[in-house]
Structures are given as C-alpha cells and as structure tokens.
Nucleic acid binder design. Structure first.
Lengths: 338, 338
DNA sequence: GACCTCTTTGCAAACGTTTTCAAAATTATA
DNA sequence: TATAATTTTGAAAACGTTTGCAAAGAGGTC
C-alpha cells in the first residue's frame, strides 16, 4: 500500500475507459458481463479502494453521520451511542461523536462543523437552544433522540415515560406503598417533564392524595441525590418509598439514607430510572426502570438511513417501551427482617 | 442557508479571481491589503464556508481523527474518549469513534474504512492483532493509547502501572496486610501484564513470600470478579486483602464476599484499579488506583496533532502517573468494629 | 525615460470521481 | 441484406478547491 490507486489505474489495467469502471462500481447497469469481470479483476489485483472524497465532491454520500450528545461521560449515553454506531457500521457508515455539554452554543458550532464536513445526517440529543436553530436547517436530515422538541417536522425516537413511571409506581403500589416521594426534575428535558407529569397522573388515578412536601427537585446527579434526600429528611414528612428521576439520584439517595441509619429496602423502597450498567453492580442492586437506550440509538439510525437513502422520508415520532427490572431496593411494606 | 456558496461566488462579489480568494483564505501571503479586505467582506456577507471535501481532494487535511476503542460501553473508556475529543475540538478537529470489541478483524476493517474517509490520523487502543497490520501502514500517523505493542516506531501514551501497583500495595502493606490476593489477568493487555509483573516484583522487594494460591485469573468484568472470588474461597487459603485488576472485578469481589458474610473492610481490604466514576458511588466507596484516562486521551491527541502538523514527528513513549484514591474498602488489619 | 526587479494577480491544470451525450457495436425487424 | 432499435462504450464536462506559471503592475536604479 505505498501509493493510492485511482480509477484511472484500474481502467488502464482492465483496458477500458474510466467511465466503464465507474459504472461497474456503481450502477453495474448496462455493461457487458465480460468487461465487468475484467474490471472487477483489476480492482482486486490493484487492491483499489474508491476515493470517498472525490465521490462526495460529485454529490455522492460520504456515508458519515454526526451524533451530538451532552456528554459521553454521562453513563446514560454509552449504550445509546453504541446502538447508533452498530447500526451505522452495519451499513458502511461511520459516525462523528461530539459532546455539547448541553450548551446550545457549542451544539450549534458542532452542528455547523459537521455540516462543513458533509455528513449525510445528524442525530442529536437536543438541548433547548437547538430547537430554534434546527427549524431553519430542516432541509437537512436530522433526527432527535431521547428528548424531543415540539416541532412537527422533525423525527424523534424516545422512550415512553408514561409507561415507565406507571411500571415503577404500580410495583410500589402493589407492595403496599402509598407515601411515595418524587426526587427528580421537571425542567432538565422533555423526559424529565413527562416523568413528573406521569407521577402526578398516577397519584390522581390511584386516588392517592398529592402531597407537595413529598416532592424535591434537583439535578440528575449523585450529588444532587444526596442533597435532595437531606432536604426530604429535613421536612420530617412520612414516606415509605422514593421514586427517583434517574439511577444516579437513586445512588445518592441510598447513600444518604444509609448514613442516617435507614435500611433499604427494609425501611424504605427505592426505585430508580434508566438502568445504567452500574445499577446491577450496586449494593443493594437497584430496582429500576430499564430504558432501552441501545434500541433507541439503533432505531434512530435506521430512520436516519431511510431518510438519507430516500426509502422513507416521512416524519416519525417513535416511543419505545421501557420495562421494570425488580432487584433489591424494593420490598413489601412492613415485611420486617430477612 | 438555501444553497451553498462557493469560492466562485465570493470571487465575483469581491471582484477578484478565485485564486486570490483562495490565497487570502489560506496563506494570506502576497495579496494587497485592499483586496484582502474586500474578499473578507464578501466571505462575511455571503456567509461562505469553505468546502472541506474539495480541499481534501487537493491534499489538504480533512481535520478529522479516527478513534478505535474496544467498546464505549466499557466504563473505562468514556473519559478517555472525552479527553481526545476535547483536545481535538479545541483544534477544529472532529473525531470518528469506532468500537472494535477487541476483535482484530473488526479493527482492521474499521481502520481501512477510516483511511478511505481520509482521516488525518488514528488513535487506537490496540488489540494483539493490530500490531502486525499497523507495522505496514506506518507511513500514516497512528498513536497507540492505553496499551502498547513493542513496535519502536509507533508512539504511545499509557499509564505507569508499575507506579500504580506500588501505590496500591504500599497502602495495603502500611495497613498491615501481608496476605494479598491478586485477582486479575495477565493476558488481556500490556497493562494487565504489567500489573501482574509489578505485583510479583513488589512481593519480592518486600520480602513477602509469593503464594500461587493467592492468584486467580479471569476477565476484567463484574461476573468474572464473582467467579474468581468463588474460586479463591474454594481454595480455603488465608488472605486479608485483595488487589483487583480493575474496578469492575472489585465490585464483583465485594458482592460475593458480602454474600458469604465477609465484611469489607473489617475482614478484608479491597483495592481496585481504574477509578471509574461508579467507584465513588458504590457502597462501600471503593479504594482504588486512579488512572488519569482523560489526560491520556488528551495527551495522545496533542501528540497526534503535532505529528500531523509536522511540528514534531518524533516517536514518543509516554507514561502518565496514576494516583491512589483511598476511600472505604481498605482498613488497618484487625482494627475491629468502627 | 528605459531597463530591471519585485510584488501582486489571474489563468488553467490538476485532484478522483460521476454523468451527459454522442458514437460505436450489437441485436432485432422487415 | 439493409435498416431501425437497442445496448454498450468512451470523451469530456463538471464538482470546489489549490497552486505553478506567466502576465501585469509597481517601484527602483541608472
């Protein structure tokens, strides 16, 4: 592999014109079997690889996707990223990964950079700022993932949090819990908002009185989980279970409860949300709502690829169903030791 | 942003030739201040972005890097990836992330795909197979990361495991531990090998008798941690501390020890390796050797960028120093309750 | 003012493809 | 067998840049 071969070299070796070579490499239409074989042989012998750059200049796809997420260091995202990458690679696509840290400015900068590099489409976990900007560049393939904005002409694939929350609360309810605290956020993202709404809805439907003092809001972090629990304890309100907005919060909750001599799940049941890998390594193992993040990534990429190839250009709004994973942090109320 | 502007449009608006435009956009050498300003104004007005593809076709850099890792789902890698991305973006570079699952075949395929897409260089966490292949494509900028192969003409940046292991064992030793089991691997990677060698070396230097039955080998996973601990227990050998090849193993160890009524750190001290984010969320919080993975990623990218720009083409072999993070899984031997 | 030098500019040829169009070869039709 | 219809082929023009080369301008020097 000293120096790159071009289509010209192949043409010379095969004894045909470059147009013919190009044709067998692409359409493969209207070229005699004999010549076709010659070309294919030449390609083989020379170990020719077509130059993606030159093809792109003629408007051919670069077979490249952009993926914008807040941060790969957030344990929620790796499996989602893996989902898009696996699906992309299966189709010969490569993916640019960019971290935005949730900043709209960074997001826009990165987006433009990707556009400059002629990606065929971009999949992104939207921040609030995104919305406005994307509405203008809507002639370009974009699919939202995990979170969505209320733009009807943008595809998205996310998780059905109404179902997720119901799964968690049904579980808690069936265990006899009625005083269920909510520790999370209602601002962070569309998903966070939905989870809070679903919590209220569930209480209403189950005829459980809605108690403001069982609500604590904060970030989706371990540290915030600790702080929110401190706040909850300070209020001296009675609670026998806690629904956490995500797993990281749940870990914080468990840590602080433990420090205060409160046993889990004997005294309080905890359910998390996300099912990040660490949830099953934690002690006690966390009962949580599993978000099918890998599938979300995979599905969004399928949709993207269909948009690009023109197979299916329709706007799609997909919600994938989460599931409940019961582990060790939930237990029937008042079931004592053991 | 309906249709892309080209250098031609800029030339027309500025009333100069396209060569002049190109010149002010690149060298900026030998063009009158007056015209230069005109061109710059035209660029501004038209919101012109230079076409990276066309530039690349003329041999200009794509400002794109490839990053090959086993899997982004392995919690060891996200911060390393973040390190290279941050440094890359700071210099206007974008990075393709690819997962190889440690397979040499996949690795080679991905590598070639990246080459086809004309990346300016690739940073990779090598598998064994890589070595052979890379030795041939050595005219292309490559830097190894985390692990290395013994090819003298390939740069790498990794962590100094001799120091890391010494840090961990010194700590255990100072706490009075003398029967220190080793649960890890000696095959997985250069790092794993080094850790095992350093363990043996430490024992020798400290005049602690080397006991084969204190050694268990397996994978770098939680499940393997469980299995290895079962094996250790089965042997009925006396141990008061365990050094784990990575944090995931340590979590498995802790889980299984707990199941067997063994208290940590009261009965046994555990030290992990890596310091992945979960280590501080775990209960008990894990004492572990912190690998500066972010810095490793960042440093490797700096080296790569220097290679590409030609500022510094020398082969570099860099080892970054790890540090010990003492948390809750280690305690002075026999110090009883509380 | 003529000549020389140095700077600034533009033309045109690449880079490796795809694709239009017309020419050539083949096959079908009368 | 001649002609029309069809298929297969190649020449050449694009795609948006960079850059070598020569022409044009500007500024000195004698």
């Amino acid at each position: 592999m000293t120096t790159d071969k071009s289509i010209k070299d192949v043409a010379k070796v095969a004894g045909v014109s470059i147009s013919t070579v190009s044709r067998v490499l692409n359409d493969s239409q209207g070229v005699r079997e004999e010549l076709k074989q010659k070309v294919l042989d030449a390609v083989q012998n020379l170990n020719y690889h077509s130059n993606t750059i030159a093809r792109a200049l003629k408007g051919m796809p670069m077979k490249t996707l952009g993926l914008l997420i807040p941060s790969i260091e957030n344990p929620f995202f790796p499996s989602m990223v893996r989902g898009v990458q696996d699906e992309a690679h299966r189709n010969g696509y490569t993916v640019f990964l960019c971290n935005t840290d949730g900043s709209g400015i960074v997001e826009e900068t990165q987006f433009k950079l990707l556009l400059d590099k002629k990606v065929d489409g971009v999949i992104l976990v939207a921040s609030k700022y995104t919305t406005k900007y994307l509405k203008e560049s809507v002639n370009f393939p974009v699919v939202m993932i995990d979170r969505y904005v209320d733009s009807p002409n943008l595809s998205y694939v996310t998780v059905d949090h109404a179902i997720g929350v119901k799964l968690a609360l049904d579980h808690l309810y069936s265990l006899g819990h009625r005083n269920i605290a909510f520790l999370g956020s209602k601002l962070v993202s569309s998903g966070a908002k939905e989870r809070f709404q679903s919590y209220k809805r569930y209480l209403y439907d189950s005829k459980i009185e809605f108690d403001e003092s069982l609500l604590v809001f904060g970030d989706y972090t371990y540290e915030s989980g600790i702080k929110m629990t401190e706040e909850l304890l300070r209020r001296k309100v009675k609670f026998d279970a806690i629904f956490c907005g995500n797993d990281l919060i749940a870990f914080g909750v468990i840590e602080l409860l433990k420090r205060n001599g409160i046993n889990i799940p004997k005294d309080v049941s905890i359910v998390g949300y996300d099912d990040i890998s660490f949830s099953s390594y934690h002690t006690p193992k966390l009962t949580t709502v599993h978000q099918p993040t890998y599938e979300v990534g995979q599905m969004s990429t399928k949709i993207m690829l269909d948009m690009i190839s023109g197979v299916d250009r329709r706007i799609k709004h997909i919600k994938i169903e989460p599931s409940l994973v019961v582990r060790e942090t939930t237990r029937r109320i008042g079931s004592g030791n053991r």
